[in-house]
Design a protein around this nucleic acid. Structure first.
Lengths: 336, 336
DNA sequence: CTCACCTCGGTAATCGATTACATGGAGCCG
DNA sequence: CGGCTCCATGTAATCGATTACCGAGGTGAG
């Protein structure tokens, strides 16, 4: 069980450790026969190298850390998967952490990543203000890109969609469907997305003359359970609005379930919209109208920015807002 | 941007690096005033330590690697989340890799993890035979636990549910509902789960006198898209069976969608069952009858086994099969 | 008073790979 | 044939933290 080191390979191939290193990495020319000999020895002994030692010497780990609020949310999983894919092509690994929507845990994860000497960090910060200190500290130590959510006052890149505009798409669509009143179900957690979606909602519903009762703006968390509960509250409290706009698909799926449980028909009695376009939003009863986020592209841009930051020319922080698009399904479509 | 090292702290606090190390880690007694002085210096300089150097010296990374076939599948995400939670309590980090259901990529990930000197590995191997060599090699280098799926012939622990018995639960339930014929939609990929579920199906349907036409055993992959396609095939090819048994929930969700698209009512025209009990299986149209897997417990057991393997007493490999349970929902329940 | 022992701190070896620098030999030119 | 360049290889310093080992000073028992 004791590990094979470069010395063992060197001894076996009757060369120096320097030669083994050069033969295997190709960093400098080594004669063909020696390369062959070293390869054979390494193979025979089952040499795997010690990435830790290598990382220490090169001060490069070929690893980037990613911190997301939750890995149970399919939106983040697909973001993670896309990021992993993009990184792989650049020969890098992904070190994934979940902050479980807890700024304290998030700060701890960031500390770990910095201590582990990852080459860079991709993060979707949990909280608009409570995450700031930790993110700023990390950004000061190494290249960092924020995705989806962001904290202000930190000198770093950001990639995401234009949340504000996305609510315009939803509002336009609902107005076209004749909606005059709407409720909004979102998360209590104050982060950039949540805030932009709320301010987008206010702006665009005002523009279109859709009334949003302040008592029908319900804040909980990004989960199916909260959606279910919020729907129950809306049903219990008073006249239903024409539409229930949800800040993400999980909430919307919960709302659909809550409506069904309360005997309310969607889209007959009320329209429901989500946000993210997770795979399951197409399979709910009824399928969900939602805003599509191009995660693949978000991840690719984030990785590109990181790579660039790793290179020599630093460049100023960029803010890339990609265009969202509306996916219309049965939850807002009576089929007329 | 250049990092603060232990030497900087030592110089600043006017002590040796040994003392700094001891003061911060508490490995050996250091006088209170010196500890205080070192703390202050470290704080003031923003010292974060170098986990790489520490790992090299201690040959311990406090990190375990986890390799799963897909992180888009909610079953694996919840397994990952539970594992992360369990590890955190033991002061360890999770290094997550996706093998994307590709044995080649899986082998590569394992090599990386071993090179990175993780303390142990939790893996759900992609393939019953093609994964064997890589898994065996990794298990030879460090503690390894297989979860859910496994390869045989490797001397390692395993934790999962009893797949064979699970199909007994399903078959019993369907027989009770008067099912006489059934189709089975699964994955082509030969891994232990897939095989055990198929053999379980054969055994238990035979026992109960349920007929399964060989032409109605359809093999594709674990995805919604394949489920949809398989349903279309079943509809096109001939008389529908009484029930469609699916090897996982994603396939079942696809089958539901395919049935709806083909105008077939579930559960009125055909019953459908899934496997895994992912969160969305409760929200489909209709909600899905499925087998619940106790992922939390699977992950906890896996972590426990790893911890034990890290300790001194090695102990023989254990095989822990947890009991599955059936969750009955509308997709097999006409409400009569 | 002496010796054994204990506490706290420093010095330097160590983990394993990479790489700056040194070296020996081959080839080439004048 | 001397001296120069170039190539393949070896020697040893290096990355930063931990820890085996050593020593100085203090304490208590005999």
């Amino acid at each position: 069980m004791s590990r094979v080191t470069i010395r063992d390979v060197a001894r076996h191939a009757r060369v120096s450790t320097a030669t083994v290193s050069r033969a295997l990495s190709g960093a400098r020319p080594v004669s063909a026969e020696v390369v062959e000999q070293v390869r054979r020895s390494a193979e025979e002994l089952g040499y795997a190298g010690n990435g830790i030692a290598s990382a220490l010497r090169r001060s490069r780990t070929d690893t980037v850390g990613m911190v997301v609020p939750s890995i149970a949310n399919p939106f983040f999983t697909s973001l993670v998967e896309s990021a992993e894919h993009a990184l792989q092509q650049a020969g890098q690994q992904l070190f994934l952490c979940s902050s479980r929507s807890d700024p304290g845990l998030e700060a701890q994860r960031l500390r770990t990543l910095v201590a582990r000497q990852v080459d860079g960090i991709v993060i979707s910060p949990v909280h608009g203000t409570e995450s700031t200190a930790a993110v700023a500290w990390a950004a000061d130590q190494l290249p960092l890109v924020q995705v989806d959510r962001y904290v202000t006052g930190v000198d770093s890149h950001w990639v995401g969609v234009d949340d504000h505009a996305a609510l315009g798409l939803i509002a336009d669509h609902l107005a076209q469907r004749g909606v005059r009143t709407a409720a909004f179900v979102s998360s209590r957690l104050t982060n950039s997305s949540t805030e932009l979606r709320l301010s987008g909602l206010r702006r665009h519903t005002t523009r279109l003359g859709i009334a949003v009762d302040e008592r029908q703006i319900l804040l909980g968390d990004y989960s199916i359970a909260w959606g279910r509960e919020a729907a129950a509250q809306l049903l219990a409290d008073g006249p239903l609005p024409d539409a229930i706009i949800c800040a993400d698909d999980l909430i919307a799926l919960g709302v659909l379930e809550g409506c069904a449980a309360g005997g309310i028909g969607v889209p007959d009695d009320v329209l429901v919209t989500g946000f993210d376009d997770i795979p399951f939003s197409a399979l709910s009863a009824p399928p969900l109208t939602t805003v599509h986020q191009p995660q693949e592209q978000i991840a690719a841009e984030a990785v590109r920015l990181l790579q660039r930051a790793l290179g020599p020319g630093a460049g100023p922080p960029e803010r890339i807002a990609l265009a969202p698009s509306l996916v219309v399904r049965a939850s807002t479509d009576r089929g007329d």
